[in-house]
Simulated assay, not measured.
Amino acid sequence: MTQLVTTTVDGRIAHVTLDRPKKLNAMNDQLLEEFSATIATLGADDAVSVIVVAGAGNNFSVGFDVDPGNGYSEAAAGLSPYADWASLRRNIQRWLAVWDTPKPVISAIEGYCMGGATMLAVCTDITVVSEDATLGWPAIPLGGGLLSPTTAWLIGPKKAKELSFIAGSSLTGSEAAAMGWANHAVPAGTALEKADSLAAQIAKMPLDLLRLKKLALNRFLDQQGFRESVLMGAEWDAIAHTSPATHVMTDKVKELGLKGAIGWFNQDPA
């Protein structure tokens, strides 16, 4: 089986690459499991001070793979509400594991960063985006509150609501940096270079102090409710998945494929 997450270590900096470029690094079950195992291993490795996460093929990730049979769409079309909630929560906990990793994690984003991939980026400590990156919400309505509460922490509730209410909403990398969603927006093709430059500076800090600094900042945000807000997304999405409107969309994905379902949703009313 071909690995979908690859890792290299250069000095005290580890590079984790989402490596499914033909699918724009869409997150299927295999990729998610490999990612979680990789983050856990690197988090426990005292030889590594900083982790940089990027995507192969000039894209970060288009988010959860909603093609039938890849886990996410099944959660929206057949599981009991409790089982659906448990499945969604498990994936959210993958991102919170990044939040809890006892060393800085930097996301380097080129191209598309969509859907669930935006949650991963929010849970990293520092985010670098290319100016022309596309940070987007799902093109068809399949959920009810997984992404936007997380994003609201960085860009505020007004903009988060606008992005949530309009299917297919997006921000450019430049807009995201201006709003505080990202630390830096850089010319296309240089996000990883900028992330590596930051990582090299961060790696000079003793690891025990880095751990304490991250813990202190995260504890502050968790006291304000960050963790519970992120976890709560599973509850709202599980409720939304019981909606007849959601089942119409998942049926269309099965019938027409994702691109066909997007076209059907966007067609002008008769």
Rank of each mutant, 00 (worst) to 15 (best):
45 D>E: 01
146 L>K: 15
44 A>R: 09
137 W>I: 07
229 S>F: 04
54 A>Q: 12
141 P>K: 01
71 G>I: 02
143 G>W: 00
51 I>S: 00
211 R>G: 07
27 M>V: 02
165 F>T: 11
127 T>F: 02
205 M>K: 03
114 M>R: 03
231 L>D: 06
53 V>T: 07
224 Q>T: 04
92 I>G: 01
172 T>Y: 06
134 T>Q: 09
115 G>M: 02
147 L>R: 04
172 T>F: 04
11 G>T: 04
160 A>G: 08
244 P>T: 01
92 I>P: 01
61 S>L: 02
90 R>H: 13
111 G>C: 05
157 P>S: 15
32 L>T: 11
61 S>D: 05
246 T>N: 14
164 S>W: 05
20 R>W: 11
236 W>R: 14
27 M>E: 02
136 G>K: 00
170 S>I: 02
160 A>V: 10
20 R>T: 09
170 S>K: 03
122 V>N: 14
162 E>N: 06
3 Q>R: 12
136 G>S: 05
143 G>T: 06
202 I>V: 14
260 G>W: 06
161 K>Y: 13
82 Y>M: 14
59 N>H: 15
101 T>E: 10
201 Q>K: 15
5 V>F: 01
36 S>R: 08
267 Q>C: 07
218 N>I: 06
21 P>V: 02
88 L>N: 08
145 G>N: 13
16 V>R: 10
124 T>F: 00
58 N>D: 11
157 P>N: 10
115 G>P: 02
132 D>V: 12
32 L>G: 13
207 L>W: 05
179 M>W: 09
66 V>L: 13
185 A>P: 00
166 I>S: 12
77 A>S: 12
87 S>E: 13
1 M>Q: 08
136 G>A: 04
143 G>D: 03
207 L>K: 11
206 P>D: 15
121 A>W: 03
17 T>H: 04
38 T>I: 04
105 V>W: 02
63 G>E: 03
249 M>C: 09
198 L>F: 11
75 A>P: 06
129 V>T: 03
67 D>F: 05
7 T>S: 10
27 M>L: 03
175 E>M: 01
143 G>C: 09
162 E>V: 12
21 P>L: 05
10 D>P: 05
90 R>I: 07
12 R>E: 14
90 R>S: 14
253 V>R: 15
2 T>H: 05
76 A>S: 13
269 P>G: 11
225 G>I: 04
193 E>H: 08
197 S>K: 02
5 V>W: 00
248 V>H: 13
263 G>I: 07
78 G>Q: 03
95 W>E: 03
2 T>C: 05
31 L>K: 11
234 A>L: 04
249 M>A: 14
114 M>H: 09
23 K>C: 04
73 S>W: 05
112 Y>D: 15
166 I>V: 14
230 V>I: 14
164 S>I: 06
204 K>V: 06
222 D>M: 07
181 W>T: 06
138 P>W: 01
97 A>Q: 15
133 A>S: 12
50 V>L: 01
118 T>N: 06
72 Y>E: 15
167 A>N: 13
178 A>I: 05
267 Q>L: 08
15 H>G: 14
3 Q>P: 11
157 P>K: 11
222 D>I: 09
104 P>A: 00
170 S>Y: 01
212 L>F: 03
